[in-house]
Amino acid sequence: MPLTVMCLPYAGGGAGVFRPWQNQPGLPYRIVPVQLPGRDEWFVQEPRTTMADAARVCADQIRESAAGGPFAVFGHSFGALLAYETVRLLAADGAAPPEHLVVSGAAAPGVARPRMDGALLDDDAFVARLRGLVGYDHEAWHEPELRELLLPALRADLEIQDRYVPSPGAPLTMPVSVLRGTGDELVRYEDAARWAEHTSSGATVVDMPGGHMYFTQDWPLLWKTLGTLIEAHG
């Protein structure tokens, strides 16, 4: 059975971000997007408002999709923290752990990070602050109707991140790989390297060309890098 890579979205994103790549030829693993309420086909559901609730949604999907087979977990930015808490929740449930955790574009849990404080901002100010922090723009943010649909989930995810406190417990037991864009002004290298404090199997930082949303400019490089990392830790 081929290894499955469970992909958790960044703030405001949904499973649709990863679905175009599910049947990518030549990949040595299977991509399974993990969905969160308030987006895509779950749009009518209310977004989760705590990290614990969001992690529970992800853990349940991962357990079902893994079906007892080997898997790894990937998450970017907010999704990296969510991936970490999801893996911890799987362990607490006594479920089979992933063979590998790949976190991207995120400082380690417990590291102070810029706050959005979205509840204090109207939509224009919220988008402007996000654009300034991340160094990334999205065409949907300029379309009032699309923005109205997308911002509730984005606000909810970033509010979770603002309030996030890592869950207590022993370090993870699987290796952790940390992807970081070399031009990422939001996540310092030394803060990304501190993921090593959260696993007993070691963590490695991998430089990627680009900024915080580096992979949006070269998705094939992301999938190739994941394949290399998975093979190295297989």
Rank of each mutant, 00 (worst) to 15 (best):
R194P: 00
D184F: 08
D184L: 03
V178P: 00
V206L: 07
G211T: 03
Y214C: 08
Q217M: 05
R194V: 06
E185R: 07
V205P: 04
S201N: 10
A196I: 08
E185I: 04
E190G: 06
Q217T: 12
G210I: 10
L179S: 05
D218Q: 09
T199C: 05
W219F: 12
A192W: 03
Y189E: 14
S200Q: 12
A193L: 04
T199G: 08
M213D: 14
D207K: 07
T182A: 15
A196G: 09
M208L: 09
P209Q: 09
D207N: 11
T182W: 02
V178K: 03
W219T: 00
T204K: 12
R188G: 11
P209A: 11
E197C: 03
F215W: 09
T199P: 01
G181H: 07
L179R: 07
L186M: 15
E185C: 11
V178G: 06
W195V: 12
Y189H: 15
H212V: 06
T182K: 02
A203Q: 00
T199K: 03
M208R: 03
A196D: 11
S201D: 14
H212P: 11
W195D: 08
S201A: 15
L179Q: 07
E190L: 11
T204Y: 00
G181Q: 12
G211Y: 04
V205R: 05
D207M: 11
F215H: 07
R194D: 05
M213V: 15
L179K: 04
F215P: 00
A192H: 02
G211P: 03
W195T: 14
M208A: 12
P209H: 08
V205L: 15
M213Q: 10
G202W: 03
D191W: 02
G202K: 02
Q217V: 02
T204S: 12
D191S: 15
W219Q: 02
Y189C: 14
